[in-house]
Design a binder for these strands. Structure first.
Lengths: 139, 139
DNA sequence: ACTAATAATGATTATCATTCTCATTCTAGT
DNA sequence: ACTAGAATGAGAATGATAATCATTATTAGT
């Protein structure tokens, strides 16, 4: 039995619910959104438990987080390898298809002493409408 | 004159001070740290102004931000292309030398309608000490 | 099954980085 | 120098997340 699987071993009820929700929804969700959705489907968890469980899932290598421009975090499963291009002005995000990072991740896993669970790769700039707007404002 | 340079055109006093500080320090700094350092060197700016200026510098393509695990943001210049490997348990960060993302960034800049200023690339997992500690705790 | 010990949960409160507000000060163009 | 309009500062407001602690569920040992 390897390290990862022993850490993943037992999940609490709350952790299972959240893992399951992330699996079903397919998209990434904020902690507050997870709280709401569970409440809506009569699986109510305390907000504190949602945060605690998300942290535990991360440490077990099952969940990942990316920071949104507004300061919130979006959570998803580590099996999901999606990345985004985000406008610094309006916050619009569009998905990026390519991901050239896997070979580097493997190399790092061997050379560093870290056990790597996931990576984030995000691009930032201005979307076309915002570029236009900002140029118009500051001639 | 291209889009980027026109946006970068004029910097306010506060924006210049912060840009200069980031240039000198060489490391990335949180907004609160920037506020403190400027105060220490008798260049005091209001906290609101620090935040406003950082946002403006980002939109002008001069500064970039990466989210720290504790919810703060670390700011640096876009000319700095450094990336990190961070422990999900204790927050320790170590720099990653390689960066295989540039060719993708160029390709995206052409195919998407975004004007891309910078990217973040972060790896997350457990450092060796934390892996040991967590295994000891949950046998 | 029963009980003691341990871990998980929920309700509430506290924290703290960031944003908002608005009165004041600076700046650019005339 | 004068006058918009932008920039700034002080302080209050916001809101996501973390901490606290009493209660409930789970586990392990008998």
């Amino acid at each position: 039995m390897n390290t990862a699987s022993s850490l993943k071993s037992r999940l609490t009820r709350a952790q299972k619910q959240i893992h399951c929700l992330l699996e079903q929804s397919g998209e990434t969700l904020t902690a507050q959104a997870i709280y709401q959705r569970l409440k809506d489907q009569q699986q109510m968890l305390g907000l504190a438990t949602v945060y605690r469980s998300l942290r535990s899932l991360q440490i077990k290598g099952l969940a990942q987080a990316r920071a949104l421009p507004n300061g919130e975090w979006a959570y998803g499963l580590t099996s999901d390898d999606s990345h985004y291009l985000t406008c610094l002005n309006c916050g619009t995000s569009v998905p990026v298809e390519d991901c050239p990072v896997h070979s580097l991740e493997e190399k790092l896993g061997q050379s560093s002493h870290f056990q790597i669970f996931y990576h984030t790769l995000e691009f930032f700039g201005l979307c076309a409408p915002c570029t236009g707007r900002l140029e118009a404002e500051s001639p």
